[in-house]
């Protein structure tokens, strides 16, 4: 799997991870442990050597541990319910306080449908996209991940057809979205999950996500053909 394909997959997985983990409507195959497994495989395939990617050895080991736990788990249904409750507590409604509201507007204005949401919506509209009825709000993490996946799919298409200029423009677009939106709030959002989640599943996810997005940002800013991960590893460590 090349780097671009891997990015497409990672964005897809990240978006899925913000669905309830026991949501069968997205296909039981995609639930819980399966997603983690795909995430691990994707990143591994993409970068070959784990130590040089955003999956630093200890993070990698944590994910492997989670996977083992899932495999050995004799009460998978119970585990999924527990994860679903944690998902609700972190991102939907919680007693106590909602841990990590998944809306960019919240981190800037303490509310939903603030300026960030409107700005996202008009960015999507420029690309002929709209938030579907019953979808999440425009600045919800899931929607933002889907948008980046969309751009990467476009980038892949351009790459396949040798449209270098178009690909460059799409990469610029990805970069500016990350810069103008993702970096505004994702570090705090992930930080809240990392410090407050009861479940290693979500702590690991948050840590991975934060690393991955910083990596994306650095990589889009300074494209290095050969080994993007080596280049930014030191930067990632700081995050």
């Amino acid at each position: 799997m090349n780097h671009l394909n891997a990015r497409i997959h990672v964005y897809e997985i990240l978006a899925s991870l913000f669905r309830p983990p026991d949501d069968v409507s997205s296909g039981a195959e995609e639930c819980g442990g399966r997603l983690l497994e795909r995430l691990l495989n994707t990143v591994q395939e993409c970068c070959g050597i784990s130590a040089r990617c955003c999956l630093r050895p200890d993070l990698m080991e944590e994910i492997r541990g989670l996977l083992r736990a899932f495999e050995e788990d004799e009460d998978q249904a119970g585990t999924l319910t527990r994860l679903a409750a944690e998902h609700t507590r972190l991102f939907v409604n919680a007693f106590p306080t909602l841990v990590a509201p998944p809306y960019e507007s919240f981190y800037q204005e303490g509310r939903v449908m603030g300026k960030a949401a409107l700005d996202c919506r008009s960015i999507y509209a420029e690309d002929g996209l709209t938030v579907r009825e019953g979808g999440e709000l425009p600045d919800h993490i899931l929607t933002q991940m889907e948008y980046l996946r969309f751009l990467c799919l476009g980038e892949k298409r351009a790459a396949d057809e040798g449209e270098t200029e178009a690909r460059g423009l799409l990469r610029e677009r990805e970069l500016s979205f990350i810069e103008e939106h993702i970096l505004n709030w994702l570090p705090e959002f992930c930080g809240r999950i990392q410090s407050n989640s009861h479940e290693p599943y979500y702590r690991v996810l948050a840590r991975f996500m934060k690393n991955f997005m910083v990596l994306e940002y650095r990589n889009l800013n300074h494209p290095v053909e050969l080994d993007p991960f080596e280049e930014v590893f030191n930067e990632v460590k700081k995050v």
Binding site: E126, G128, L153, G154, R157, A166, L170
Partner: peptide, 13 residues
Amino acid sequence: LGASAGTIAAGVM
């Protein structure tokens, strides 16, 4: 960049 990149993306997607 909007128009060009957006159109391309939309066109293929």
